[in-house]
């Protein structure tokens, strides 16, 4: 019997299972990005303070999450820490936590670089009209640095979304994990099932990430329009 490999998706509930897997990945990525962004903005602002110690500690935090590969972080939080602390979190919680901490670390650096790139005379002018530090941040530095942060933040978000493909390592039933189940279960019938399943996963990730790129373009255009009057 000859059949096209695309039929692999129409066997039983294969397609729905893949979509469900995607939803699991997307949910983890979404929560992690939101939490990470909020924490990252706060930490980023703290990194511009005068206190050397605060800056040093946050710097170590950033370097730790930037240098250690995400796979290692996931393993560390899922398998190694529970062994020592007798603290048992579910795989989804661990995944969200790791991704949020990672997002926050990298976000803090984006925010810091954005903030320090605002010309000094702007903050001086703010001080001159009697703004307190919080007001300075809210009305002077943050609005002016936002446009510098957006491209890097979008880039980071799509990296976080793509990296959810590592979640199968800690037993999260994400889209890749379900895809592998389907490939192996249909190995006899669909010899090139891997091509079709990974092809679909490619399209699904594209659908998740592409709107972000579009949004970034849109923002850049809007920004240019403001600047050019």
């Amino acid at each position: 019997m000859s059949h096209s490999g695309i039929n692999i998706f129409f066997e039983g509930s294969n397609f729905v299972r893949l979509l469900h897997g995607l939803l699991v990945s997307a949910e983890i990525a979404f929560v992690a990005i939101i939490l990470g962004a909020i924490l990252g903005i706060i930490l980023g602002a703290l990194r511009t303070t005068k206190s050397r110690i605060v800056r040093f500690i946050l710097r170590i935090y950033l370097e730790f999450f930037r240098i250690v590969p995400t796979v290692v972080l996931l393993f560390l939080f899922y398998y190694i820490l529970p062994k020592n602390f007798n603290l048992n979190l579910s795989a989804e919680v661990v995944a969200t936590l790791v991704f949020a901490l990672w997002m926050a670390a990298e976000m803090s650096d984006i925010v810091r670089s954005g903030l320090i790139s605002v010309p000094k005379h702007q903050t001086d002018a703010g001080k001159a009209i009697g703004l307190n530090p919080v007001q300075l941040f809210r009305y002077i530095t943050l609005p002016q640095s936002l446009k510098l942060m957006i491209p890097a933040t979008i880039n980071l978000t799509s990296r976080v979304i793509k990296t959810t493909s590592l979640l199968l390592l800690i037993s999260v039933m994400d889209v890749i994990n379900v895809g592998q189940q389907i490939i192996e279960a249909n190995q006899q019938q669909y010899q090139n099932g891997a091509f079709w399943v990974y092809g679909l996963i490619f399209i699904l990730y594209f659908i998740l990430c592409y709107p972000l790129s579009l949004w970034e373009k849109h923002m850049a255009r809007k920004e240019a329009a403001i600047q050019n009057g």
Partner: peptide, 8 residues
């Protein structure tokens, strides 16, 4: 092995 040893 890790799944066992970390009580997963």
């Amino acid at each position: 092995v890790d799944a066992l040893n970390s009580n997963k």
